Amino acid sequence: MDLALWIAAGLLAAVALLGGSTKTFIPKEKLAAQHGGEWTQNAGVGFVKTLGILELLAAVGLILPAALDIAPVMVPVTALCWILLMVGAMITHRRLGQSKLVLVNSVYLALAVFIAGGHLLGTN
Rank of each mutant, 00 (worst) to 15 (best):
M1G: 07
M1F: 01
L3T: 14
A4Q: 10
A4S: 08
L5G: 01
A8P: 03
A9R: 01
G10P: 04
L12N: 00
A13I: 06
A16T: 08
T22Y: 09
T22E: 03
T24D: 06
F25W: 15
F25P: 07
F25A: 14
I26R: 11
I26W: 13
I26E: 05
I26S: 09
K28R: 15
K30P: 04
K30D: 12
A33N: 08
H35W: 10
G36V: 09
G36P: 00
G36D: 03
G37Y: 09
W39I: 03
W39Y: 07
N42T: 15
N42C: 08
A43K: 15
V45H: 09
F47R: 13
V48M: 08
K49F: 07
L51V: 14
G52L: 12
G52Y: 05
E55M: 01
L56N: 08
L57G: 15
A58M: 13
A58T: 12
A59P: 01
A59F: 07
A59W: 02
V60F: 10
G61M: 09
I63D: 00
I63K: 06
A66P: 04
A66E: 05
A66L: 11
I70A: 04
A71R: 15
A71Y: 12
P72C: 02
V75S: 04
V75I: 07
P76R: 01
P76L: 02
P76V: 01
V77P: 04
A79M: 08
A79R: 05
L80T: 07
L80S: 06
C81D: 12
I83G: 05
L84E: 04
V87P: 02
A89K: 10
M90G: 12
H93P: 07
R94K: 14
G97R: 11
G97S: 05
Q98D: 14
S99G: 04
S99N: 13
S99I: 13
K100H: 14
K100Y: 11
K100P: 08
L101Q: 14
V102H: 02
L103A: 15
V104F: 10
N105P: 08
S106F: 09
V107M: 00
V107D: 01
Y108K: 06
Y108M: 14
Y108E: 12
L111Y: 07
V113H: 00
F114K: 00
I115K: 05
I115Y: 07
A116R: 12
A116I: 03
G117I: 10
G117V: 01
G117L: 11
G118M: 01
G118C: 11
H119L: 12
H119T: 10
L120C: 00
L121E: 03
L121Q: 11
T123I: 14
